[in-house]
Write a protein that binds this DNA or RNA. Structure first.
Lengths: 205, 205
DNA sequence: TGGAAAACATGACGATCAGCATGTAAGTTC
DNA sequence: GAACTTACATGCTGATCGTCATGTTTTCCA
C-alpha cells in the first residue's frame, strides 16, 4: 500500500502525524471523547505510544492539534462545496442545504465531541475557540458572497441562525431522532429564509 | 443540617438516592461526562462507593437513572414556567424566551453531556431516547395551548425549529460564544416567529 | 428486646489510563 | 561509510478506574 521504499524524515514525520490526527478523529467519531485513549488512537494509527509521545508532549496537545486538523479539513470541505453556488433565492436554499450537509457530517460530529468536552476543559477550550471562530468567519464570507444583494447585516443574521439551527438538528441526528422530521424542519426553514430574503431585497425597511 | 433523628428505611433510601442523582448531575455539569467517575459522584453525595453499589448495580444504571431524574426536573421547571403564558403574538415571543431559558440552563447542560455521550453508548442511548421524546411531547403540548389559533401543524413546526435553534445556541453558549450575538439572534428569531404567526392566522394558505 | 433484613462503609482486585525512561531503526551529514 | 540526529518501539510506573467481597450500622418486625 504505502511505499516502504525511501521516505524523507519530513515525509515520515508528516505521515505518522496525520495518521495520528486522522486516527484521533476516527476515535472521537466512533467511540466518543470519553473513551478516546492514547492507546486506542495509536492502535488505529498503527504506531506505538512512543510515537505520539514524540510528536505531542501530552494528550491535551494531541487534542489541540486534532482540533486544528479537523477545522482545516472542514474548511476545505465547505469551501469546495460553497464555491459553485447559484445566486438569488435558490442560492439561499442551496446554501442552507450545504451548511446542513457540512454540519451534519462525521467531521462535525468529531467537532461536537471536542466542543462538549472543551466546556469543562479550559486548555482544550483555549485551543478550540480561535480556530472555530476563524472557521465561522470564513464560511460567513463565502455565504455572503452568494446573497450579495442582501444587506450584510441581514445575511449575517440568516447565516448564524442557520448555523445554530443546523447544529441543533445535528445533535438530534446524533441521538437518532426522526430523519423525516429533520428534513421537514430544514425544508420549512429554507422556505422561511427565502421568504425573508425576498422581503428584504424587494421592500427594505 | 439534616435531621439525624429517625429516618424510615424508605426515607433513607430515597434521600441517598436523590443525593447520588443530584451529585451525578452536578458532576456532569462541573467536570463533564468524560471525568464523571463513581468516586467523584459519591464524594459529592457524601456517601461511600458501597452505597451506589447498593442502589445501582453498575455505573451505566446510575447514568440511566440520572437521565430520568434530569428530565423529571426539567419537565417540572418547564411546566411551571409555561403554565402562565399570555396568548397571541406576544405569547409566541414569551414562549420562545422560556424555551431558551429552559434549554440553556444547567439542567440542559447536563442533558447535553449525556446526549453526546449516548451517541457512542447504545445502553445510555436506549435509556435517554424514550424519556427525551416524552419531554419533547409534553413541552409541545404546553406550547400548542399557548398558540391555539395557529394550525397545529404550523405550531409544531415553530416549536421544533425553536427547540433545535435553541439547542444550537446553547452549545454556542457552552463554548463561550458571544452572548450579545446570541441575544441578537434570539430576538431576530422571535421577530420572525411572530411574523409567521401573524401570516398564518390572518391569511391561511 | 432480640434477630432478620435493609442500608451503607471499607478495603482489595484486576484492568486501564497517561506519562516517562530506555532501547532500536531509519534518515541525514560529512 | 561512520558519527549524528531524528523517528519510532518497548516496557515500566504510579494513579485511577469500575466492580466485588466482606464488615458495620440502622431500621424493622414479632
Amino acid at each position: 500500500m504505502t511505499e516502504t521504499a525511501h521516505r524523507t524524515q519530513a515525509q515520515r514525520r508528516e505521515q505518522t502525524r496525520t495518521a495520528l490526527l486522522d486516527a484521533t478523529i476516527d476515535c472521537l467519531v466512533e467511540v466518543g471523547y470519553a473513551r478516546t485513549s492514547v492507546q486506542e488512537i495509536c492502535a488505529r494509527a498503527r504506531v506505538s505510544k512512543g510515537a505520539v509521545q514524540h510528536h505531542f508532549t501530552a494528550k491535551a496537545e494531541l487534542m489541540a492539534a486534532a482540533v486544528e486538523h479537523l477545522t482545516t479539513k472542514l474548511r476545505k470541505q465547505l469551501a469546495a462545496s460553497l464555491d459553485d453556488l447559484p445566486g438569488g433565492g435558490t442560492g439561499v436554499a442551496a446554501a442552507i442545504d450545504l451548511l446542513w450537509t457540512g454540519y451534519s457530517g462525521t467531521l462535525s460530529t468529531a467537532v461536537t465531541e471536542l466542543w462538549v468536552a472543551a466546556r469543562t476543559d479550559p486548555e482544550l477550550r483555549a485551543a478550540i475557540r480561535p480556530v472555530d471562530r476563524a472557521l465561522g468567519r470564513a464560511t460567513l464570507e463565502h455565504v455572503t458572497q452568494v446573497a450579495g444583494e442582501l444587506p450584510p447585516e441581514r445575511a449575517e443574521m440568516l447565516f448564524w441562525l442557520t448555523v445554530n439551527l443546523t447544529r441543533g438538528l445535528a445533535l438530534d441526528a446524533e441521538l437518532g431522532g426522526d430523519p423525516a422530521r429533520r428534513r421537514q424542519l430544514l425544508e420549512e426553514w429554507k422556505r422561511i429564509a427565502v421568504l425573508l430574503y425576498q422581503d428584504a431585497t424587494t421592500a427594505p425597511s
